[in-house]
Design a protein around this nucleic acid. Structure first.
Lengths: 112, 112
DNA sequence: TTTGGTATCTAAACAGATTATATACTAATG
DNA sequence: CATTAGTATATAATCTGTTTAGATACCAAA
């Protein structure tokens, strides 16, 4: 059977960029935010977030720094770069189109 | 970079079921229908359709038969089964929820 | 006869997501 | 004080739907 994560596939990076637009964050927190919004239907594994971070950092979409580990486990923070913001804008535009197409295809509405 | 097909991933089978609800069809035709609806943003390769057919037939979602090859290349037709119809209904319900969640996550609207 | 469209099929490669596992710090429980 | 649970990061190996590439085959038009 398909991964449950196939529903999110291709959008993980877009969602991470969207969250980081609100301010710097770190893997564990982002994973929890997605899980909370997922309402039990969508869930992400933390490994998915961390591997996405690696890709996105290489592409220059994110910058990273270590938080000052005062109490608790160390955190690696990520911030969105200028390129990341531009990339998000593109992805958002694409999603709006893709969403319309997918709705037409899945629900079967035709607009001639 | 991500496959362009990652946008469709996880929904291919749902779309095939949706199309077959309108009547029996075959791989080449289904691929063209998705391509036409895809507006250049979404595209499927025929191999994706054919491998999906195999999976879906094994799951009992589809039944298949050869068309009478009067002129032109032979066609293998597929029809949706009862199980396939029930499966589509489930997938449609899931999609409606997933679509909402994805829109919230990607666009960043929160509903407290 | 060669090109292009129609039509199906499969092995191998691709890549994002998952699984499994390791590490490490802190707070609360017993 | 030992144990458990929560927080937090990381990576190798595996999984699986999709893509790539190649094969086969029929027909019509140039």
């Amino acid at each position: 059977m398909a991964h449950s994560g196939d529903l999110l596939r291709g959008h993980t990076e877009t969602i991470i960029l969207r969250i980081l637009k609100d301010g710097d964050s770190y893997g564990y927190e982002i994973a929890k935010k997605i899980m909370d919004a997922g309402e039990g239907i969508i869930d992400v594994k933390d490994a998915t977030i961390y591997t996405a971070f690696r890709r996105m950092e290489e592409e220059g979409l994110l910058a990273t720094y270590w938080g000052d580990g005062v109490g608790g486990a160390r955190r690696r923070y990520y911030s969105i770069t200028e390129r990341g913001r531009a990339n998000y804008d593109e992805r958002l535009k694409e999603w709006i189109k893709v969403d319309q197409i997918l709705n037409n295809l899945i629900k079967g509405e035709q607009n001639d």
